[in-house]
Amino acid sequence: MDSIIVDHLQKDYSVFRKKPGLKGALSSLFFRKYETKQAVNDVSFSIGAGELVGFIGPNGAGKTTTLKCLSGLLYPTRGTVRVLGFDPWQRKREFLTQISLVMGQKNQLWWDLPAMDTFLLNKEMYAIDDAKFKKTVSELVDILDVSRLLTVQVRKLSLGERMKMEIIAAIIHTPNILFLDEPTIGLDVVIQKQMRDFIREYNKRYNATIVLTSHYMEDVKQLASRIIVIDHGALLFDGSLVKFIDTYGKDKILSIVLDDHVKQDQLKRLGVVLSYEYPKVTIRVPREKTKDIAALLLRKFPIDDINIEEQDIEDVVRTVFSGKTGE
């Protein structure tokens, strides 16, 4: 059963355009020009219960706007959104108690009080009973290893520690649907991994539907089996990571271990040499010529080992967003 159904969603913003300079300022005093910016344009998709979906797109693509529409923060200009059978915009109690939105660049914790006080505030807001609250806090604190920080003033916590507390505050009511907007932004690699492990664990333990946006492709690679790619407000791709690379990854990577020295120029004729540190070489070659080039390498060069790999998702995404695929 689908938890989330988005049908032809469109969200427009009205943007004030001012011509530069004093002349522009004077004319804007009397004749103000507004433009309609389509942040999300005719986007449709559905997400099943318990799915963990990665939402990818460059800055300003419309990811956050979509997430805001799904969580009921924004009123759609056109189209419909159903989350757990509810119209998010109506913000009914039954809906709000089943969702949560975490925005990496916004916080809900009381700055000058320990995080536990915010947890207690949320406990009251969501009307969580004492026993469930204690159990959930204890579980979450344990998984994220922050028990010793519960009584420390939030302002004294590091960014990573604060983000862990933010996550706990957001899911203290164990929501069925979790919207995560850049949850690992600004965190170091160790904390990023801990957060990813936690998100995966939460998804499994509570069969929660999770929609995740992140600029770190590692988040998406590690967590999401399905990705939705959005660019300029429009849906570009919806499917598995493998299918995405198949569709948009025009190249493959050959990882070679040489038996003897080979001139780099000879290899350059076959593809783009990404690295050459004897004996290891990596070459990017066109997908359709991979087999032929691999065979040629084995025939004509002193090769000890060769591996054919898919292009890194990050490279594919970068290529797609910079418009180099010709798609």
Partner: peptide, 12 residues
């Protein structure tokens, strides 16, 4: 500054 987000997604 968008602090309203935290209130709008809560049943309050």
């Amino acid at each position: 500054e968008g602090g309203l987000n935290a209130y709008l997604v809560k049943p309050i």
